[in-house]
Simulated assay, not measured.
Amino acid sequence: MRVKFCGTASLADMRCAIDAGCDAMGFIMGVTHQSSDFVTAAEAAKMIRHLPPFIEPVAVTHLQETEDLIGLVKESRCTTLQVQNAVEPSELDVIRYALPYLKIVKAVHVTDESAIETGKLYEPYADALILDTRTAAKIGGTGIPHDWNISAKIVANSAIPVILAGGLRPENVREAIRKVRPYGVDVHTGVKKDGVRNPERTLAFAREARNALLQD
């Protein structure tokens, strides 16, 4: 099971994720909705310089304009782009043409069963989907789980990898994985303690995620 830790805002955050054996690390940039732990593209690039091999740096952003998204990726030096906000599916092809090396992950907010259709809409254009929770104020980092039954339907019928996010934490990630069967999982607020990324919770999350399917 692949594991991404999102909201990396310091070298201490980065060290927690590296020590837990993460596969990917998210840097939140270009925010237009309420968010925590966001950084500038320049700050992300400076941290990514210290990232060891085989860990994928992910630009997680609310930006919607194609040129802004391309510029953010270039400045931050990320190799994956996670688009949290609404964009036209065809615009993802424009980004891919400009940055041929880039992997594109499109967020689908699981508010009801309409998320199934939304996922299908983006499948031909994205490299993966990430199933997340939203509120009126936040389009990520809510700490709130969504309906995993809907997420499981999306995973079962998707032609591309699907990552599960939204309210995951060490205490529930095993159950979530066993129910949804995603390609990977993504966590932000669920590994915090007293407002900062906690080494013990980060390690526990990774351990629970990777062991979730061992009994099958």
Rank of each mutant, 00 (worst) to 15 (best):
A86G: 01
A86Y: 12
V87G: 00
V87T: 08
V87M: 04
V87Y: 03
E88A: 08
E88V: 04
E88Q: 09
E88F: 02
P89W: 02
P89A: 01
P89M: 02
P89H: 03
P89K: 01
S90D: 13
S90T: 08
S90P: 00
S90K: 07
E91L: 01
L92S: 02
D93M: 05
D93K: 07
D93F: 11
D93V: 05
V94I: 14
V94R: 11
V94M: 02
V94T: 12
V94W: 00
I95Y: 03
I95T: 08
I95C: 00
I95K: 01
R96H: 05
R96N: 04
Y97G: 01
Y97Q: 15
Y97W: 07
Y97A: 15
A98R: 03
A98G: 00
A98L: 00
A98W: 00
A98N: 02
L99G: 06
P100H: 08
P100N: 07
P100L: 02
P100D: 09
Y101D: 10
L102C: 05
L102H: 04
K103G: 03
I104S: 01
I104T: 09
I104R: 08
I104Y: 10
I104K: 10
I104N: 04
V105F: 08
V105Y: 06
V105A: 05
V105W: 14
V105K: 06
V105H: 05
K106M: 14
K106V: 14
K106Y: 07
K106T: 11
K106F: 10
K106E: 09
K106G: 12
K106W: 13
A107D: 13
A107L: 11
A107V: 12
A107N: 13
V108E: 02
V108R: 03
V108D: 10
V108L: 07
V108N: 06
V108S: 05
V108I: 15
V108H: 00
V108T: 09
H109K: 13
H109Y: 13
V110K: 01
V110G: 05
V110S: 04
T111N: 14
T111L: 15
D112A: 07
D112M: 11
D112Q: 10
D112E: 13
E113L: 01
S114M: 15
S114E: 14
S114P: 03
A115T: 10
A115G: 10
A115K: 04
A115C: 08
A115E: 06
I116M: 11
